[in-house]
Simulated scan of single mutants.
Amino acid sequence: MKVTYNHIISGIVTLIGVTILFSCQGNLNEVREMDLQGDSPQAVAEGLNLKFTDSGRLVAILRSPRMFDYTNKEFPYREFPDGVEVEFFDEENRKNTVNSDYGIIYEETGLIDLRGNVVIVTSDNTQLEASQLYWDQDRSWLFTDRPNTIKFPDGGINEGQGFDSNQNFGNFRSRTNVGVQIIDEKEDE
């Protein structure tokens, strides 16, 4: 058998090609691990419709077109980039609704950051509108430093720059505000 120059060259090219293929396969697993540790979520949910119960009673329904789960991070969180709607039900089955264009839940702190067209409607038709709102789940407390408008069922309106409140608006503190309050005066007979 006569070995020619072309046989030697094609043998060398084949050897280099096989070496490259085997060396890439070993690095592929390392590349996949780096991707999981990077900015990728550990899970993506589409068309989310979660129902939360407590002792068989429906307490909340969460809906969102999409959720990214980053609970694999050092500071775990869940992100709702396309908006979120949550309905809460109290012990008497009265519904409170929260809508926003964007939401993020920080797992360790229990803090929820809602942004963009945040609207809360309580069971008594009190309506809060803000560009951003934080909700501390552990303390059942709402707060913001951004401009906000609250419309009360009696026709009263409060426009302010920042407020703190418990989640049923029973203990409300507005920082700076302008508004109209309706006072029902009853005459003594």
Rank of each mutant, 00 (worst) to 15 (best):
V178I: 13
R173S: 12
F80V: 13
E30P: 02
G47R: 00
P76G: 03
V31C: 01
F52W: 06
V121M: 00
A43M: 06
Y77K: 08
G160F: 01
I157V: 13
D54E: 15
D90W: 03
G83Q: 04
N96D: 15
W141I: 03
R57S: 15
L58S: 15
I9A: 07
F68E: 15
F68A: 06
F52S: 14
I183Q: 05
S123T: 07
P147C: 00
G56A: 06
G38H: 07
E46D: 12
T176G: 10
N171D: 15
R57I: 14
E79W: 06
L133E: 06
F22Q: 10
D69I: 07
Y77S: 11
Q132V: 05
P41I: 02
G116L: 00
L62E: 11
R175F: 15
F75D: 15
Q167S: 09
F22N: 14
Q25K: 12
G11F: 10
M67W: 05
L36M: 11
F169T: 14
D124R: 04
M1C: 13
S23C: 04
V178N: 13
L15R: 08
F68M: 07
G156I: 01
G160Q: 00
G83T: 12
I8P: 11
G179D: 03
N166I: 02
N49C: 02
N171G: 03
R63D: 13
R78K: 13
T19F: 06
I120R: 00
F172T: 13
E74A: 04
G26D: 08
T176I: 08
Q37L: 09
I182A: 02
G155A: 08
A60M: 08
R115P: 14
S55D: 14
T144D: 00
K95W: 07
N29E: 12
S123R: 01
N177W: 07
I182W: 03
E108S: 11
N125T: 14
D82G: 05
L50S: 11
I9M: 00
I105L: 08
I61A: 02
R173G: 08
V3C: 02
E189C: 02
D138F: 06
